[in-house]
Simulated assay, not measured.
Amino acid sequence: MQHPTHNPWKIVSEQPIYDNPWINVTEYQVINPSGNPGIYGKVHYKNIAIGILPLDDDMNTYLVGQYRFTLNQYSWEIPEGGGPLGIDPLESAKRELLEETGLKASDWKEIQRMHLSNSVTDELCILYVAKGLQQFEAEPEDTEDLMVNKVPFDEVYRMVCNGEITDCLAVAAILKVKLMQLENTL
């Protein structure tokens, strides 16, 4: 499928609004594609979003539960986190899996790359399936109060379909793995 390569947006000026170790926010004065002046805000992420769907030999996976500050509610997710730009994303995935679940995997497969909320951010996400699991001690960060549950994959798929799992990385990874399972490509 072909798409235009010409950018119809014109940047008139930009102003940094906010910066911390994880994100920065910039406000742009623009000329929009219809030729009218406007503003656009962009959140730039300083990490790549990483998600891992660990699968054992019996098709069980591991969900991580935690209270999400931004949502003000509890969330069940796959192991996930941020990988610094310039670092191999697979190394970040291995670190996150060990950190959150205590698991190490011998078999890794990248299953999806996607952009998250691309109307306001440039955040890239990479999803992996991890197999050949061995249990070690989890190493959560001090900001993480995590609960880890081993759950049959079919149950996790049902949870996505019923809206019990709403985290976009988890939903995308679980649906992708279900499709791969149906297509015999897992």
Rank of each mutant, 00 (worst) to 15 (best):
L55R: 09
D56L: 10
D57I: 06
D58R: 11
D58S: 11
L63R: 04
V64S: 06
G65I: 05
Q66C: 06
Y67G: 04
F69R: 15
F69I: 10
F69T: 10
T70L: 05
L71S: 04
L71Q: 05
L71W: 03
N72F: 02
N72W: 03
Q73L: 11
Q73D: 15
Y74S: 09
Y74N: 07
I78V: 14
P79K: 11
P79V: 10
G81K: 02
L85R: 09
L85D: 01
I87T: 01
D88Q: 02
P89V: 04
A93T: 07
A93I: 12
R95H: 01
R95F: 03
E96W: 10
L98T: 03
E99C: 00
E99Q: 07
E100W: 10
E100A: 04
E100C: 05
T101W: 06
L103Y: 12
L103K: 12
A105H: 08
A105G: 07
A105K: 06
D107I: 08
I111Q: 01
Q112H: 13
R113I: 09
R113H: 14
M114Y: 14
H115K: 12
L116K: 12
V120P: 11
V120I: 15
T121G: 09
T121L: 11
T121R: 10
D122N: 14
L124I: 14
L124T: 14
C125P: 01
Y128E: 10
A130V: 11
K131L: 02
G132Y: 07
Q135N: 12
Q135H: 14
Q135W: 14
F136D: 11
F136Y: 15
A138W: 00
E139D: 07
E141I: 00
E141M: 02
D142V: 07
T143V: 07
T143I: 07
T143G: 00
D145Q: 13
L146G: 06
M147T: 13
V148S: 01
V148D: 01
K150T: 06
V151G: 00
